[in-house]
Design a binder for these strands. Structure first.
Lengths: 216, 216
DNA sequence: TCAGTCGTTGACCTTTTGGTCAACAAAGTT
DNA sequence: AACTTTGTTGACCAAAAGGTCAACGACTGA
């Protein structure tokens, strides 16, 4: 029964090497896109022979899918942030705050994902249809119930969600443009606070709420 | 003096062929990215020998830059939409409406641009620094003056602009995701109205304005 | 200890890449 | 008509792409 407990030396190094490769691949795919990043570049970055990557992941496609799978798993962990039991203002504020933090903390993943979607999401269609869509549907229903109870203004729940996503992801995906315009080298902690506040203020007030004061 | 008036047969076909090539290149670069689209694919799509493209544009880089230049020129035409003389609500509403229309009418351009920025904007840095940044600065000053006059709420003007950009572009750049979630094949005219209304409602109310009734 | 499995890797393969070139066609100039 | 300039294009090239393979190394289990 406990077959997965004993980790051979082999299995340990296997896991380690795979993560090493995935890290390098994530970095390069995010920076250069699927076609822009070559197997030999990834091999060099991971300090591993190219043939070794092919041994683990079968093909470039396989590697790319593995990279995306890992991101999706990670992101799913934080997806259920929207909790129905609290007040709308608190729920939405926390969701926005978390999304901004996540975007800025993990821009590579956000950008890789964005690049995928930009090109028609060939590797993500299944995931979006089977995971994201039902999740969105549930949250849209929650928003609708808030509307029906008069807790928030009447807005299309889907577009409300898209508005939150677009504004929060923008700072990761279009980081280079934002920083160029703001004439900065990086986001400071103060920037992150300002971004969160701006977005939260506009969206919350925009649907008839006010930003919650600090009593979570 | 009037050397540019007489268009030789040569110059005419030159212009025509260049536009043909640029159209094909725009399409393919937008769909597949810089590295994903190859010269032979573009040549085939434009129904022109590959060597001919190289003759006109010198290199793949040259072609890419030409494609981007054309887009930038087109976009600049619509950039000065924000007009200081009218009421904030009307100005912003029209700007949002135009941006949504433009995004959905010209998704290829929006996505090509987005792909560029995503990868660090290597070909756009100069343009952003020299054109976009000053423009943004001016508009931010206008927003600030509205704030000082108490016409709109106090929000960071830059982030207000980023919010407008992100929400309006989202429907072009992430079209595949949006359509998958909404379970649609294309945006309908009604969708466009709903998108515009949602965004305008949230953002305008979010800064203390109300959506203008139909009297431009 | 000794098979047998799993992992490692340099050499090698085919295909495609961006790009060159030389020979030729077509227009403009005199 | 002769000459020059500009455009056209198939054949070609070196480099790099993704991927295969066979020989070898290292660990495990009996």
């Amino acid at each position: 029964m406990t077959t997965e407990i004993k980790l051979n030396k082999k299995e340990v190094t296997r896991e380690k090497n795979q993560q090493l490769i995935l890290n390098a691949a994530e970095q390069l795919f995010s920076q250069l896109g699927y076609d822009g990043a070559s197997m030999s570049m990834i091999a060099k970055a991971a300090q591993v022979p190219k043939a070794n990557i092919l041994y683990y992941f079968k093909s470039k496609d396989g590697l790319y899918e593995a990279v995306i799978d890992r991101i999706v798993v990670n992101w799913n962990l934080g997806l259920n942030d929207i909790n129905a039991t609290q007040e709308p203002a608190i729920v939405l504020y926390n969701y926005i705050k978390n999304k901004v933090s996540l975007s800025i903390a993990q821009p590579l993943q956000s950008r890789l994902f964005a690049g995928e979607v930009l090109r028609g999401a060939p590797y993500l269609q299944n995931y979006i249809s089977s995971s994201t869509r039902p999740w969105v549907k549930k949250k849209a229903a929650l928003f609708q119930s808030w509307i029906d109870q008069g807790k928030i203004d009447s807005v299309n729940p889907y577009h409300l969600l898209f508005t939150i996503w677009s504004t929060t992801q923008y700072y990761a995906d279009f980081q280079s443009e934002v920083l160029l315009i703001l004439d900065k080298k990086d986001y400071t902690p103060q920037d992150i606070t300002e971004i969160t506040d701006s977005i939260a203020q506009i969206i919350l007030k925009g649907i008839g709420l006010s930003v919650p004061t600090k009593n979570e």
